[in-house]
Amino acid sequence: MDLSEILIRPIQTEKADILREKNRTYEFHVRKDANKIDIAKAVESVFNVKVDSVHTVIRKGKAKRLGRFESQYPDRKRAYVTLHSGHKLDIFEGA
Protein backbone atom coordinates (compact mmCIF):
# COMPACT_ATOMS: atom_id res chain seq x y z
CA MET A 1 0.00 0.00 0.00
CA ASP A 2 1.39 3.39 -1.05
CA LEU A 3 1.40 6.18 1.56
CA SER A 4 -0.45 8.56 -0.76
CA GLU A 5 -3.37 6.10 -1.02
CA ILE A 6 -3.99 5.96 2.74
CA LEU A 7 -5.56 9.42 3.11
CA ILE A 8 -8.88 9.58 1.24
CA ARG A 9 -9.99 13.13 2.08
CA PRO A 10 -10.03 15.65 4.91
CA ILE A 11 -13.19 16.15 6.94
CA GLN A 12 -14.44 19.73 7.13
CA THR A 13 -17.29 20.08 9.60
CA GLU A 14 -18.02 22.45 12.47
CA LYS A 15 -16.81 19.89 15.01
CA ALA A 16 -13.60 19.43 13.03
CA ASP A 17 -13.12 23.22 12.97
CA ILE A 18 -13.45 23.40 16.76
CA LEU A 19 -10.92 20.57 17.25
CA ARG A 20 -8.53 22.23 14.82
CA GLU A 21 -8.67 25.57 16.65
CA LYS A 22 -8.41 24.11 20.16
CA ASN A 23 -5.64 21.56 19.96
CA ARG A 24 -4.21 21.22 16.41
CA THR A 25 -6.24 18.06 15.65
CA TYR A 26 -7.18 17.35 12.04
CA GLU A 27 -9.71 14.77 10.81
CA PHE A 28 -9.31 12.56 7.74
CA HIS A 29 -11.21 9.73 6.11
CA VAL A 30 -8.66 6.94 5.69
CA ARG A 31 -8.60 3.42 4.28
CA LYS A 32 -10.05 0.79 6.58
CA ASP A 33 -6.95 -1.39 6.43
CA ALA A 34 -4.55 1.43 7.42
CA ASN A 35 -3.09 1.41 10.92
CA LYS A 36 -2.00 4.36 13.06
CA ILE A 37 1.67 4.13 12.09
CA ASP A 38 0.82 4.17 8.36
CA ILE A 39 -1.52 7.14 8.84
CA ALA A 40 1.14 9.13 10.73
CA LYS A 41 3.75 8.41 8.04
CA ALA A 42 1.31 9.39 5.29
CA VAL A 43 0.44 12.74 6.90
CA GLU A 44 4.12 13.50 7.58
CA SER A 45 5.18 12.69 4.03
CA VAL A 46 2.30 14.41 2.21
CA PHE A 47 2.16 17.63 4.28
CA ASN A 48 5.75 17.87 5.65
CA VAL A 49 4.67 18.23 9.29
CA LYS A 50 5.48 16.39 12.54
CA VAL A 51 2.67 14.19 13.89
CA ASP A 52 2.24 13.95 17.67
CA SER A 53 -0.53 11.31 17.91
CA VAL A 54 -3.18 9.49 15.87
CA HIS A 55 -6.56 8.20 17.06
CA THR A 56 -8.82 6.14 14.82
CA VAL A 57 -12.57 5.46 14.84
CA ILE A 58 -14.64 3.20 12.61
CA ARG A 59 -18.06 4.73 12.02
CA LYS A 60 -20.77 2.24 11.13
CA GLY A 61 -22.74 2.91 7.96
CA LYS A 62 -26.39 3.81 8.21
CA ALA A 63 -29.11 1.43 7.04
CA LYS A 64 -31.06 2.66 4.04
CA ARG A 65 -34.30 1.43 2.56
CA LEU A 66 -35.81 1.69 -0.88
CA GLY A 67 -39.30 0.19 -0.91
CA ARG A 68 -39.05 -3.32 0.42
CA PHE A 69 -35.30 -3.60 -0.17
CA GLU A 70 -32.81 -2.84 2.57
CA SER A 71 -29.11 -2.15 2.25
CA GLN A 72 -26.46 -0.29 4.17
CA TYR A 73 -23.98 2.49 3.56
CA PRO A 74 -20.38 1.31 3.94
CA ASP A 75 -18.46 1.69 7.20
CA ARG A 76 -15.86 4.48 7.23
CA LYS A 77 -12.67 4.90 9.18
CA ARG A 78 -11.76 8.32 10.57
CA ALA A 79 -8.36 9.38 11.83
CA TYR A 80 -7.86 12.22 14.31
CA VAL A 81 -4.30 13.46 13.76
CA THR A 82 -2.73 15.77 16.35
CA LEU A 83 0.33 17.75 15.24
CA HIS A 84 3.30 19.01 17.28
CA SER A 85 3.14 22.64 18.39
CA GLY A 86 4.24 25.06 15.69
CA HIS A 87 2.96 22.83 12.86
CA LYS A 88 -0.27 23.34 10.93
CA LEU A 89 -1.84 22.20 7.68
CA ASP A 90 -2.43 24.98 5.17
CA ILE A 91 -5.17 23.14 3.25
CA PHE A 92 -7.71 24.01 5.96
CA GLU A 93 -6.96 27.74 6.04
CA GLY A 94 -9.42 29.98 4.19
CA ALA A 95 -8.18 32.02 1.25
Rank of each mutant, 00 (worst) to 15 (best):
E21C: 12
G61I: 07
V51H: 03
A40N: 06
L7G: 00
E27I: 15
E5C: 07
N35M: 10
D33Q: 12
N35K: 09
K62D: 10
R59V: 13
Q12E: 13
E14C: 06
D52V: 10
H29W: 15
R24W: 06
V43L: 10
V54H: 04
S53K: 12
H29R: 13
I8E: 07
I6A: 10
A34W: 00
E44S: 14
L19C: 01
N23W: 10
H29Q: 13
K32L: 14
R20I: 08
E14R: 05
E27Y: 14
I58E: 01
H55R: 14
R31C: 11
K32P: 05
I8Y: 09
H29L: 14
L7I: 09
V54K: 04
A16L: 04
K41I: 07
V43H: 02
E27C: 11
R20V: 06
E5S: 11
N23P: 10
R24H: 10
E14L: 02
K41H: 12
E5F: 11
E21F: 12
I18E: 10
R9L: 06
E21Y: 09
Y26S: 02
I58Q: 11
A40D: 04
F47I: 11
V46I: 12
D17R: 14
F47M: 00
S45I: 09
F28P: 04
S4L: 11
N23R: 13
A40C: 03
V51N: 05
K32I: 12
R20N: 06
A42D: 03
K32W: 06
E27W: 13
A40K: 12
K15D: 04
S53G: 02
G61V: 04
N23Q: 12
L19S: 11
A16I: 03
K41S: 04
I18L: 13
D52R: 14
L19V: 07
N35Q: 05
V51P: 06
L19D: 11
E44W: 08
I11T: 02
F47Q: 01
D38P: 05
T25Y: 08
K41A: 10
S45D: 12
S53W: 07
S4R: 15
V30G: 03
N48R: 10
V49I: 08
V46H: 13
T13Y: 05
Y26C: 07
D52Q: 09
F28C: 00
V43S: 00
K32D: 02
I37T: 15
I6P: 06
E5H: 15
R20C: 01
Q12P: 02
I18A: 11
V49W: 03
I39T: 04
R9D: 08
V51R: 07
K22D: 01
E5K: 15
K22I: 10
I58R: 01
R24M: 02
I11Q: 00
